[in-house]
Design a binder for these strands. Structure first.
Lengths: 342, 342
DNA sequence: TTGAAAGCGCTAACAA
DNA sequence: TTGTTAGCGCTTTCAA
């Protein structure tokens, strides 16, 4: 038993497809179709359990009512929450979302973009791990409406919604310095060309500089996305013991913090007496750790909402808006006990 | 500048669409198309930046190469991780996934099923919040291949991949009893008709019974999905203080545990001296809490993998397999210090 | 107030 | 070795 189509209904009723289509799209009155005919059509549609084929509709209309979402990893709570909000917001406009994880892998990301484009997405929200912007320039050439989130390309005029990483990081480091810490280790996720990572690094560097503390590159470690555990097992002792002897650690994402806390625990070090801790990206459980972990709470909800808003605007009036929407959201430092001296 | 289609290439080359289609689908040799012609076609396709329109292809072929995933909330790490694995696994077969969150709301879920069906998904993975199976019976009538995960319908012969909730829960409670706890509070998420919740409850009840402990319904609290915080603020004091005075709490999902821990903390109670804690569903940070939280680690990875495997099998040979795949995976109890009397 | 026909981009049967 | 034609299910002119 095949699915019923418009013409099945039309045939059953001895009318035309057009008529059925019109009625079922609530354009019956507008066009002036007999009320009774309308009733008949609707009744028959229900009786035959008709479900419109949105794919066919999309093909005809040239719009799939689907947006793509590419993020590093939907299995990371930061992005999972964003995905959730995007799903809800896009849903309000009748859009569904197809999401895909890039694993911070540029080649994979390029592949995903291609796949999603082939599936005729009407727009794309992208937390890109791309190194250079050529791929983004391509995107623009293809005329897909898109919005960058979390990461952007400073040299390019695109839509984006990001967090003010520089100041958030600057504030973190300033706070640590004010608390009396001087040897602040920084744990970056790679690839380190990602704009949030770079901005956070610059905030770190400038805050040190502005407080007269010399930058020591031994305090900065890069941790590859694909092998966090191993890299951290090696990096943390190097940072925490002689000769480097960091007295504070600043983790640049939630995975790093969680893994880092585990290792610090195993090493038998006390927080904050032996080492202070601050995390970029906040998790609920951070409040319940002993001691509670200070963290930068990112405005993920606003970011997702704004991204959808901007994308919908771009989809509605493609190209007409000359100035791109560029949104920079502040992050909040949640000071807890993991970074207080004494 | 519109996108290039097959016929654009055909026109540019003065050949037929068929030819182009055949070549681009790597069926050139099979059919026996001139090597040179093939080269020309491929070159022109590249030159014109051709991207196949999978929607049109899907319409023609009657297969979208898309599967739907409906879960309670992709913003919950348990489901986010599952979604990630499903994405990866389905990708291996050339499928993309469209996910949607039901918020444990049956009406919303029915709506989502409809929307996804309209979008011509080839299959559905469903962590259902439906109360009765009529909707699932409909699904079967529609002939969409589907697999239930996490939750199932005992009276129905469907594909499903679930966790052995009953025994996991039985083991938890037995462990608590062996540790000397007697007044074990149970915090269920609603709707409580969900099979995992029911099975866990039954495991709880039977374990108590088998150890000669009387079931006390005052020890069981239902927490609505939509208002966890408020409900817990009220429920926990009722459980923990007189006259009920629970000496242990068993939380039936990670949200409950996280919220619960926060409240216990605020109440100034010590774990496990004042109250022991066990969580259904494990989180990395549970190991780092003070004390570390005992938890049931669910095999989410296997569950997701199996679900995709079964679904792909069902899609490939629809209806031919008479016996449905029913997979029940064991869960592991990770004993930590939050539930030891010592 | 309704219908016929074209066409979105693709593939498959059949012909040449 | 290649082309013609039909049709997936839908909407939209245009005509009646």
């Amino acid at each position: 038993m095949k699915k019923t189509s418009l013409s099945d209904i039309a045939k059953a009723l001895g009318v035309s497809k057009t008529l059925v289509s019109l009625v079922l799209n609530n354009r019956g009155d507008e066009v002036g179709i007999n009320k009774d005919t309308q009733k008949k059509v609707i009744k028959m549609a229900r009786k035959m359990n008709y479900k419109p084929n949105m794919v066919a509709r999309g093909l005809r209309l040239g719009a799939s009512k689907t947006i793509g979402l590419i993020i590093p990893n939907i299995g990371n709570l930061f992005y999972a929450r964003i995905a959730r909000v995007i799903e809800d917001e896009a849903g309000k406009y009748g859009y569904r979302v197809m999401s895909a994880s890039s694993d911070e892998n540029p080649e994979k990301e390029v592949g995903l973009i291609k796949v999603l484009m082939e599936r005729q997405i009407d727009g794309l929200i992208l937390a890109s791990s791309l190194k250079d912007r050529t791929e983004i320039i391509n995107l623009r050439k293809e005329k897909v409406p898109f919005v960058l989130i979390d990461r952007y390309f400073p040299q390019m005029k695109t839509n984006y919604v990001i967090v003010d990483n520089y100041h958030a990081s600057y504030n973190v480091v300033t706070h640590l310095i004010n608390q009396g810490f001087r040897k602040i280790g920084l744990l970056k996720i790679t690839p380190s060309y990602l704009t949030p990572i770079r901005s956070r690094f610059e905030g770190y560097r400038d805050a040190l500089h502005d407080h007269g503390i010399r930058f020591d590159k031994r305090l900065v470690k890069e941790i590859p996305f694909g092998g966090i555990s191993n890299a951290m097992e090696q990096a943390l002792p190097e940072l925490l013991f002689k000769p480097v002897s960091a007295d504070a650690l600043f983790f640049l994402n939630n995975d790093l913090t969680v893994t880092g806390l585990g290792i610090i625990n195993k090493l038998g070090l006390r927080i904050p007496q032996d080492v202070a801790i601050i995390s970029f990206d906040d998790l609920k459980l951070f409040q319940l750790l002993y001691p509670p972990v200070t963290a930068v709470a990112q405005p993920w909800q606003e970011m997702a909402k704004e991204a959808v808003r901007v994308l919908m605007q771009e989809i509605k009036s493609p190209g007409t808006i000359k100035e791109k929407s560029q949104v920079i959201l502040p992050a909040r430092l949640e000071v807890r006990k993991s970074c207080s001296k004494f």
